[in-house]
């Protein structure tokens, strides 16, 4: 018990807090190390990169002098593509504006943090996966255009494609998608997974016993 009393006495004797200065321009303070903020800031940055890519893709028909037959299907796809991007964009930016209530009990707060990190990560993954089929189609169109393959012939001969040809196209596609999936999972896990893990470890400390 003396240890306890001494500790209390010592604690109360610590008056060294006077050198903390509270800045007056609080608005200018930037949160630096809160895990949710960190994850979200990185995600936003990447999101802007992807947005830039989306815009560049939008100019592909002009810069690559697309076959007029390809332009309509291209922009039809592009429109859906932009809609999907818009959905994730609003999710990441607007949905999160008014979150974080740090006055919850510590455990609830940690669960909220954990949930937010996980949700952000999953949102990001879902976004990436949504883009894959579009990118495959866009690249396909660009190849058709660049190789000067007649578009009408493409449709005519589509019926005449052999089973082995179809199978090889399918295999290549599956390979590409699987490869992208593995890269995405690995990337997200190494880059953002650590924050989720840290918070998970903390939550485990709260367990009974």
């Amino acid at each position: 018990m003396t240890f306890d009393n001494n500790l209390h006495a010592l604690w109360n004797s610590d008056k060294s807090g006077g050198n903390i200065n509270i800045p007056h321009a609080l608005e200018k303070l930037k949160s630096a190390k809160m895990p949710v903020d960190k994850v979200r800031r990185h995600l936003r940055y990447e999101f802007f990169m992807q947005l830039a890519a989306v815009i560049i893709i939008g100019f592909a028909p002009v810069t690559l002098k697309f076959n007029p037959l390809l332009i309509f299907p291209f922009y039809l796809l592009y429109f859906i593509f932009v809609l999907i991007c818009g959905y994730f964009f609003t999710k990441l930016f607007l949905f999160y504006k008014n979150m974080s209530n740090t006055a919850l009990t510590s455990k609830d707060n940690l669960y909220a943090v954990y949930y937010d990190i996980k949700l952000s990560i999953e949102l990001y993954k879902a976004f990436t996966y949504c883009l894959v089929p579009f990118l495959v189609l866009f690249i396909g169109m660009i190849i058709v255009n660049e190789e000067k393959i007649p578009v009408d012939a493409l449709f005519m001969q589509g019926a005449a494609i052999s089973k082995s040809q179809a199978a090889s196209v399918l295999l290549v596609l599956i390979g590409v998608i699987l490869g992208l999936a593995v890269v995405t999972e690995l990337y997200v896990n190494t880059r953002y997974g650590k924050y989720a893990k840290q918070v998970k470890r903390l939550l485990d400390e709260f367990r009974e016993g």
Partner: peptide, 11 residues
């Protein structure tokens, strides 16, 4: 509460 909740997840 706020201070500790901040400290807990400050890495």
């Amino acid at each position: 509460r706020v201070a500790l909740n901040t400290a807990l997840v400050f890495f």
